[in-house]
């Protein structure tokens, strides 16, 4: 058989490709569930018309508080608003006992990275969507996946395993910071973003 050798070679290539592009991501990432559901769309939609910074707020010194504390939720959800199962759980498990919700944060950066929301949002005039995409209008929380080796959320690398973002906001690796800074002619030392 003339092409027998080539056939085996190709079979090997194809097996690798299948393994690498389909099986590998499944093995590399572990899916974890969020403690409770959350519908951003309801909050930001026309009915309520909330903006991002109403919950994800800045402290007085510019420090970004990130995910709001339960007390913030309780401002509105002191009692159940509606009768969904999620709402019931929110009240019973978190608001009433005053427990913080152990959210898993999609965009959590490692401890050694320093990111000032104030500098980027207030001074640099970036919008939330430029980095976080249409997260604020989603009606369901995306699946949270964690890298088994590095422990990072999958969103840091980007949903696309190739590392090439399929959406402009995808991926939050250092390359993206550097690219954005380079595009804007910012000249920084390493410590400007590393702590």
């Amino acid at each position: 058989m003339k092409y027998r050798g080539v056939a085996f070679l190709l079979a090997g290539v194809l097996a690798s490709l299948a393994l690498g592009w389909f099986v590998f991501p499944m093995v590399l990432y572990r899916t974890e569930s969020q403690p409770i559901g959350f519908n951003h769309a309801i909050h930001t939609g026309e009915a309520n018309g909330m903006t991002c910074d109403m919950c994800h707020e800045f402290a007085e010194d510019g420090r970004f508080n990130g995910i709001p504390v339960t007390a913030k939720c309780a401002d509105c959800h002191s009692t159940a608003l509606g009768s969904t199962e999620t709402e019931k759980r929110l009240i019973e498990e978190f608001i009433t006992p005053g427990k913080e919700i152990p959210w898993k944060v999609y965009s959590r950066q490692p401890d050694n990275a320093y990111f000032s929301h104030a500098t980027h949002v207030m001074k640099g005039k970036l919008t939330c969507e430029e980095c976080h995409g249409p997260h604020g209008s989603s009606s369901e929380l995306p699946t949270y996946q964690v890298n088994r080796i590095s422990g990072y959320s999958r969103d840091i690398w980007g949903r696309n395993i190739s590392g090439v973002p399929s959406e402009p906001w995808e991926g939050m690796k250092m390359d993206r910071c550097v690219q954005c800074h380079a595009d804007r002619n910012k000249v920084d030392g390493c410590v400007a973003c590393h702590k």
Binding site: F58, E60, D61, G62, R63, Y114, S116, A118, T119, M122, K123, V191, K195
Partner: peptide
Amino acid sequence: CNFCHARLHTARTKAAAEG
């Protein structure tokens, strides 16, 4: 030592917040 660079971060953030 990096001259407490973290404190410069904080100061910059504060400056940004205060415009």
